[in-house]
Design a protein around this nucleic acid. Structure first.
Lengths: 177, 177
DNA sequence: TATTGTTATACTCTATAACTATA
DNA sequence: TATAGTTATAGAGTATAACAATA
């Protein structure tokens, strides 16, 4: 929790208010209020992490608008491509998605003909997941969009070395915290 | 999306499977499966960011279990303490919380006597937020728990210099991405 | 008996519209 | 008329239990 998508309008309003005058006589509130002090909040790992994550997801969605792929859907396509022959349970659990919640996600991808469930001949309980030709083509385009529009912004913002350092630290946190 | 709380059991199961043998003859699946290849996923900023954020929030909740404070509640207490005399709209929008969703959050804190709404005398529409004495005391304890149990783990994991670099990069992303 | 995929369901978080009381 | 707080509500995301088919 702590942080939600900065609520477009509120954010705008807030920043308008923020840029107002500097010293409203504080007696009777008349004009625009002053900006609030974040204080220790800006040093809280969780707070900053969450706000950064929301920004990154928003940007991802904008970059992928033409392909209509969410981060979750993109991660599934990537993982299925890299691991052909795996079933739903394996793909879902690797992504930290619970099997029941994975069903609707897959239904969506399958209805768009991006991937397919294939009944396994070895174990007729399980569904092997594969990308369709269309799924492969879309994934290829998605990767290009992500690389050129999304991840590239990180390099602009932080520089190549810092970008790698950031990913390394985040991975360490994800795996060892 | 992409990543949910690694679903305790699934995660355990997955890691068991992961540590299995190394080369299951791949013909008829017999024993434990091999670990999946994350591939490009581990280089995706959003994916790593989300997983790190979930881990950090989980750890935060464990550290604050004795005080029963969520990251969102903690952030509200911090912000109200740092900005006395502000109303609900100002506190909520600064945190990226929509006003309607802030009501229940505040109801909770107020019912626990951690903060209070005070009708403003200047503008009788607005509620000034203040910490109660109990709220101040709890916040003080919360800060200590966060510092000694939560944020300190970051220093152990990354070192002081890297921790600061990480926060700096995340802030930059949150503000400029 | 155990597992795979699935359904049903519930709870949290986020988002929008509209009401009320003030201004 | 506009704004602050609120209510109602809807939609994602996440979580658990239980069922049918299969092992």
């Amino acid at each position: 929790m702590t942080v939600s998508k900065p609520a477009e309008k509120s954010a705008e309003k807030a920043s308008e208010a923020t840029k107002g005058r500097k010293e409203a006589p504080e007696g009777q509130s008349q004009g625009l209020a002053e900006a609030l002090q974040l204080g220790e909040l800006s040093e809280q790992l969780g707070y900053v992490l969450k706000r950064a994550q929301l920004k990154v997801f928003e940007n991802f969605l904008r970059c992928m608008a033409s392909l209509q792929l969410t981060p979750a859907q993109f991660s599934v396509l990537l993982l299925v491509e890299k691991n052909p022959g795996r079933n739903q349970t394996e793909i879902a659990s690797t992504l930290g998605i619970l099997r029941p919640n994975f069903v609707a996600l897959l239904d969506n991808l399958e209805s768009r003909d991006l991937c397919a469930r294939i009944r396994s001949t070895n174990d007729r309980r399980s569904h092997i997941l594969v990308l369709t030709d269309k799924g492969k083509a879309v994934l290829t385009r998605a990767k290009k969009l992500v690389a050129t529009k999304h991840e590239s912004r990180l390099n602009e913002l932080l520089g190549q070395a810092n970008r790698e350092a950031l990913l390394g630290m985040l991975s360490k946190i994800a795996n060892e915290f």
